[in-house]
Design a protein around this nucleic acid. Structure first.
Length: 552
RNA sequence: GUCCCGUUGGUCAAGUGGUCAAGACAUCGCCCUCUCACGGCGGGGUCGGGGGUUCAAUUCCCCCACGGGGUACCA
């Protein structure tokens, strides 16, 4: 038996059979309908919003069905490894609430379906490859780089499809003796699939495959005809082969991956068929896009788009829950309606479905994220916000650390400012914005940023502040406080209501709004802010008076 | 070049052979109001183009355009 001998020659050290692995990694015992999903990042040291987006789908699918979500590291490309990136991946995803049930963790692997690093699964892939060689469905190919590129040139010249297939696959039918001779000569080789597709078919003769995608419905594509590489010269598998072997042995039920894999789907289908394995449900997600300077949609790129990096959100201080809610609104458009109907339920109560996912690429929209974040933060109690802000500042804004010392009560009052009642304020968006927003509460960061209204001269402003300090009583309630402002405003020549001023502008210097703006700027340094009385109550009498006095 | 996927307002999108073509963000106007927010009310704005099929097409079919992706011993 030619093939059997070749297989022995190629893989002398492989003694296990595929069936042995099926015993080692038996079918998972899970309840009916449980989904097994996986994330398979390559450890390049960069994890982005697209990864989170996909991971979120995996996580929801598994969690909602009491299934399993595991992490497998796809480190088959030795050129792209980056030290420490596995930790970065795990920590980043964890920060945004993505937790794995199984697979690689910070302290080693967990689960019965390992190893979870593809680099440690070499003999498994080789076993599968060996059996394919034995069965005449794969073969060693000794074509070197030059030979392959000259094949390509020839194909381009004659306008044929590029690749190694059909008669271009010159090593397809090598005999045992030829293989032996090549190996003895020390020639490097790869293992290629001997595609069962017909490369010479044209028009209606072209066979098609039909796959039901979890997101896109039925996909019909031409069958694969390429003798793709399954094991590289190093003995390490390509993605295609590793995917098929691993997702079978790890008993993955749903493969969630980006649309960039769509075109290699026929390859995967052939591999599953040729190995006689049950295919998982493929779920090809749309890619996240962004509008470029010329107004074209384009794929987010890590070089050009800082907001693609998960670090961006951590740096800016977006709350993980905000990012999660935003992602869910892109993932399932009906989430938004659900959220409006159920403002107080945790987002995990929403039933996520693949069918509701869009097939076209969504533009990333920072506006929307901000809007969602306002609602999210509005519901988080001040105590929790305080802890979150403190943690964020420790890492990204250390100069603010001093603000947290013995200041918890003060801080919480600030964060709760205007948040009670039926129409709570929604001022808080992300941590760095919050520090900016509340900076006037702290003498270290307080500064006069805005100018008095144009109709108020410096003398007028002093008159107003003098009258204010003279009438100031910290124990006044809000309406008493404002009535005083109206009263002395009127004697100084300012209408008590803006409408009165508008009716007879010639009678007044301005209106009560101008008066309170002057006060607002003295106390807050800004012409716009939440309610002055409430802010003064938080600041305290001493600080309030000092700030006014300083402007006199 | 070739293969694959996609295309509903500025953005995210629901949706169906006959709809006034939802909703959200953004935007504009008004109301509330001492500013800003919040909230309320309202406005503008969409089925990429061309052919079919049909009494009727945004919806079904074909062609084109545009966008994205693949075409690796990357994933």
């Amino acid at each position: 038996m030619n093939n059997k001998n070749s297989a022995e020659l190629l893989f002398p050290h492989i003694t296990k059979k595929i069936s042995d692995y099926d015993t080692i990694y038996p079918k998972r015992i899970l309840q009916e309908g449980a989904k097994v999903t996986r994330l398979g990042p390559s450890p390049t040291g960069f994890i982005h919003l697209g990864n989170l987006y996909g991971a979120f789908v995996d996580e929801r699918l598994a969690a909602q069905s009491d299934g399993v979500f595991f992490l497998r590291i796809e480190d088959t490309d030795d050129k792209r490894q980056v030290e420490g990136s596995v930790e970065v991946i795990i920590n980043s995803l964890n920060f945004f609430g993505i937790k794995f049930d199984e697979g690689v963790t910070i302290d080693g692997s967990v689960g019965d379906y390992g190893p979870y690093y593809q680099s440690e699964r070499g003999s498994i892939y080789q076993c599968f490859a060996k059996e394919l060689v034995e069965r005449g469905l794969a073969y060693p190919c000794f074509l070197n780089e030059e030979e392959i590129s000259s094949i390509r040139e020839e194909q381009e010249k004659t306008k044929q499809n590029p690749g190694i297939y059909g008669e271009w696959a010159k090593n397809r039918e090598l005999t045992y003796d030829e293989i032996l001779a090549n190996i003895d000569a020390g020639k490097p080789y790869v293992i290629r699939l001997k595609s069962q597709g017909n490369p010479n078919a044209v028009g209606d003769e072209v066979k098609t495959i039909s796959v039901e995608d979890g997101i896109r419905g039925i996909l019909v594509m031409p069958e694969n005809v390429q003798d793709i590489v399954i094991l590289k010269a190093t003995g390490i598998p390509t993605y295609h082969f590793a995917h098929v072997v691993d997702d079978h042995l790890m008993r993955t039920t749903h493969v969630v991956r980006g649309a960039e894999w769509l075109s290699s789907l026929p390859v995967h289908v052939e591999l599953f068929n040729v190995l006689d394995l049950k295919m998982p449900v493929f779920c090809h997600t749309a890619q996240l896009m962004k509008l470029d300077e010329e107004g074209n949609k384009r794929k987010l790129s890590k070089r050009l788009d800082p907001e693609l990096s998960l670090e961006f959100y951590k740096n800016q201080g977006y709350h993980p829950r905000s990012v999660r809610e935003y992602l869910l609104t892109i993932l399932n458009s009906n989430f938004e309606e659900w959220r409006i109907a159920n403002p107080d339920l945790p987002m995990e109560d929403f039933h996520f479905t693949l069918e509701k996912m869009s097939n076209s690429g969504a533009l990333f929209d920072l506006n929307k994220l901000n809007d969602i974040s306002k609602d999210v933060l509005a519901k988080i109690p001040a105590k929790e916000l305080y802890v979150w802000l403190k943690d964020w500042a420790t890492e990204f804004h250390p100069e603010a650390n001093i603000l947290f010392e013995n200041n918890e009560d003060y801080f919480e009052k600030i964060l709760d400012l205007g948040r009670s009642g039926n129409n709570p304020r929604k001022d808080l968006i992300y941590a760095s914005q919050i520090f900016e927003f509340i900076s006037y509460f702290f003498d270290d960061t307080f500064k006069i940023e805005d100018k008095n209204p144009e109709n108020i001269s410096d003398e007028d402003a002093k008159l107003i502040l003098n009258a204010y300090i003279a009438s100031y009583d910290h124990s006044d309630d809000q309406s008493a406080w404002f009535n005083k402002i109206r009263t002395f405003g009127l004697t100084l020549g300012y209408a008590a209501k803006p409408k009165e001023y508008k009716k007879n502008p010639e009678l007044y210097k301005g209106h009560v709004g101008d008066v309170s703006t002057v006060i607002r700027i003295a106390v807050m340094g800004r012409s716009q802010s939440p309610d002055v009385w409430e802010i003064q109550q938080i600041l305290g009498e001493e600080k309030t008076k000092n700030r006014i006095l300083k402007q006199l």
